[in-house]
Design a protein around this nucleic acid. Structure first.
Lengths: 232, 232
DNA sequence: CGCTATGTTGATCCATATCAATAAGTGTGG
DNA sequence: CCACACTTATTGATATGGATCAACATAGCG
């Protein structure tokens, strides 16, 4: 693995406080890989051999049971996934697949656990990261259970607009088909949901979205920091 | 707070590895309280002043938005709740209320954070606990999104039977009204769901439940360790 | 230029919520 | 010990959010 990547990973606050020698030990067993869209990365039930760190792109965490499948969370850079399984040395509870082209660092779980025991700065960083993951799953769950699909779409668009720097018109990173899956609905339903948002000033053409009057959309969407703010 | 309670808390594996003096510091600011059923313990959005440790009883974690309310998880002894908010020093994401009469230890969050920084054994124990909380939320989410309400009820009954020592007939700890809320459905729907399970050998009278042929019910419920096993 | 994947639209179905009425407990004061 | 009030449980009728199925429209792309 090239040193430039080492430095990139070292900057992540999960790794920036730990002792140099421990970091180097971790990196010896680690590697970074670029995956195309829609590649299966892990399967639920498998032993947690690697901690995954998403460096760029996005990843869908999902689960299946009895021929049904559901998306549980979307991971965005830079953050880890399946940290809890790694820590507990238990099987993954969720499967993961790339949504877009993604760069991912893979670090052997056994090493993580060993160094976690040896380096208390690292242990503390892990707690912070894990608490963040926990809270993001809770927020995803609230989003899904408390909102209708149109409300989820409206709030998603507002967040996407914020990510795009607040312009009135912006690119929608996904194909609509994948956006539907991210939002937990069928493509047909997403299509209707977009139409339903027209009275609230949303104009959707191909992969571009325009929000005529953000305040109007906000009155419908009612964004809430305890659901939509990724930082808290 | 009586010393007997100190010892009880000290036995929880979250606290059993930490240095004695740190434990005593924590206990100085802590207290244990017994709450009747249906008491609101915390409200989402409030600052996380206390880490809660459920010693006996059960607690519902729920959330509200826009006049809608949903239950997100049920906490059973012995475990902590709102640990992630405490660690991150951020507002609670969920509200909590007792489901039954419950004993709860309250430990000032600021102390937890201080000692977390000073005691690496404690930090490690927190990681383990937090990973467990994370995984239990994920399991709750899978249960809710992948199963119909009858399937959730069937699996709940199988777990309740296991908790009761595997007898064919056992007490159902809750009022049906509360069970419905725990399972994420309306009381009316629960009533119908119980009827729907009769062909699978479930007999429900008042607060007692009988499972005539567990294998038959299992064929319908399809329990899965990645959803139903609280230990992994 | 057609082929295949994606997006839209319409019709219908399903799980579950909601509303309404009634029945069955449970508790309290006289 | 009973009458009354109040909560809980059941049952029926209806509404709703969203999925599914089917038809058709587009749009990249070899």
């Amino acid at each position: 693995m090239p040193d430039s990547v080492h430095e990139e990973i070292r900057k992540l606050h999960l790794f920036d406080a730990m002792a140099v020698e421990h970091f180097q030990t971790l990196m010896r067993g680690a590697f970074v890989q670029t995956f195309p869209p829609l590649v299966d990365l892990i399967t639920e039930g498998d032993p947690s051999d690697f901690l995954h760190v998403l460096i760029s792109g996005s990843v869908d965490l999902f689960s299946a049971w009895n021929d049904r499948e559901t998306s549980l969370a979307t991971v965005r850079p830079v953050s880890t996934f399946i940290l809890a399984a790694t820590i507990r040395d238990q099987p993954y509870l969720m499967s993961a697949r790339t949504l877009e082209k993604s760069r991912i660092a893979l670090i052997p779980s056994a090493e993580i656990r060993r160094i976690f025991d040896a380096d208390s700065d690292f242990a503390r960083a892990i707690v912070t990261e894990l608490a963040l993951c926990y809270r993001s799953v809770v927020k995803a769950q609230k989003n899904l259970k408390l909102r209708t699909s149109s409300e989820r779409l409206a709030n998603y668009l507002l967040r996407a607009q914020a990510r795009a720097g607040g312009q009135a018109e912006f690119e929608l990173g996904f194909e609509k088909r994948r956006l539907a899956s991210v939002l937990g609905m069928t493509p047909e339903h997403l299509s209707r949901a977009f139409k339903g948002l027209q009275p609230h000033g949303v104009v959707a053409t191909a992969m571009r979205v325009g929000i005529a009057e953000p305040d109007k959309l906000k009155r419908f969407a009612r964004p809430n920091p305890l659901i939509d703010d990724p930082k808290t």
